[in-house]
Write a protein that binds this DNA or RNA. Structure first.
Lengths: 234, 234
DNA sequence: AATCGATTCAAACAGGCGTTTGAATCCGCC
DNA sequence: GGCGGATTCAAACGCCTGTTTGAATCGATT
């Protein structure tokens, strides 16, 4: 194992350090194929390193996996800061922005989301890295959502009820990320591009949730545009 | 390959036919460990068959997987009939029963849901069997839900909008099945048994959805019990 | 009883896997 | 310049995988 010169992770260089290169290649490979199907040989080939390097730097495949999950998770945290709002921002707008940024994060947009795919794998069938992921990444975001929802309902609901509201919001978004292929099969081909973009979904989820908590007109009257001020520019 | 005496699948016997035994064992193993991690040897050991049997009956591991998915899916279809309601049943009640039965199906209750776990794997990262699964199993159920939602909104919404409502309903339930472990981490330990049983979730999702479409009072006024008539007996 | 196809079995096969080895190479330092 | 630890490398090690083989067994038919 390396005992020396773990030169402080300079934020900019991504491909210099062989350890870093392996970590990145491993993340991509694990995200794409899963732990079992990904092979150490492929990972090292992609990283331009020798197969012995993974043993040298990480001990074995399993610890490489754990480290690559943490690494992707930290990178993601650095890229996506917690949303913050100026005091006085309407709760409805906060909700819309929260949902929008979550969907953007989940469904890509800014970058090929292999980090997200990797984290998703961990959430769907947790291993050791999951708890850390939840505590550092999921729970804080969830807490912000709960705060918004609490504000939205005027603090009138017990915490347990607010949590269920939060899960309802998360669930609506989560479906598109986890079962996107199935969604695409259930929806007519032409519709997917028009009505199921991250922006459009964010608009829908927000409106659905606002209506459920009584902060917007319900869906029965179509196109009433009660939350038109919140809709994303198309 | 077997060319003769595929004695018509007598509905009752499950463990007689070696082909059937392998199919069942394979389903359990694939559901538990995934395609890559499950081994032909383990499957055959569990089925009390020789390793050569899988080649004899199915050709190779991959076709065994496909067949086991179909098999589980058909068994599930036989067990869980489409919900039907007497004419005149209120749409709100239909929605509640639909959501309740879906959650019961997903989260178990009646039987250890390895069939569901297997299907879920297929939905989360589709292979060949997925399309068939969606067409025969998912889409019909989804269609029923859309009908209920259309009725609930008085047919006033365009089909695309109704579909999004449907996905919102599915998403809320789906989260508990796909990321149940994470949900359990996000919710205080004591709360999970009281507020996140299939029944309790069904009540919540129904109320949330009804409120969103304007068929029940929104959440802002807690414990108003506006849909108390729909709540499951505790 | 003999026959013949269907089925089962123990054993082996080739290939890929994660991991280890021991020597070669690099690079900063007295 | 040469020492010494850190790093890299090609090669090999067992082991386990899916798959195949060819003979043994079974069960119905003639």
């Amino acid at each position: 194992m390396p005992t020396q010169t773990r030169s402080g992770t300079s934020a900019a260089d991504d491909a210099r350090d062989p350890r870093e290169r392996i970590l990145l290649a491993a993340g991509r490979e694990f995200a794409e194929r899963g732990f079992e199907a990904a092979t150490v040989r492929d990972i090292c080939a992609a990283a331009g390193a020798n197969v012995a390097a993974v043993n040298y730097y990480f001990g074995d495949k399993h610890r490489l996996y754990i480290e690559s999950v943490k690494h992707a998770h930290e990178a993601r945290l650095r890229q996506v800061p917690q949303p913050e709002w100026a005091p006085g921002t309407p709760a409805a707008q906060k909700l819309h922005e929260f949902v929008g940024s979550m969907l953007d994060r989940m469904l890509g947009g800014d970058q090929p989301p292999w980090q997200v795919r990797l984290m998703m794998r961990e959430l769907l069938q947790p291993t050791e890295a999951c708890r850390e992921l939840v505590e550092d990444y999921i729970r804080p975001h969830f807490g912000i959502l709960l705060g918004v929802l609490d504000e939205l309902t005027g603090g009138a609901l017990p915490a347990s009820e607010v949590r269920r509201l939060g899960l309802s919001v998360i669930g609506q978004c989560f479906l598109y990320r986890a079962a996107g292929d199935v969604v695409a099969m259930l929806v007519p081909a032409g519709e997917i591009d028009a009505y199921h973009t991250p922006q459009a979904i964010a608009d829908h989820v927000t409106r659905f949730t606002l209506a459920a908590v009584g902060a917007a007109e319900p869906f029965t009257r179509p196109g009433l545009g009660t939350v038109s001020a919140l809709e994303s520019p198309r």
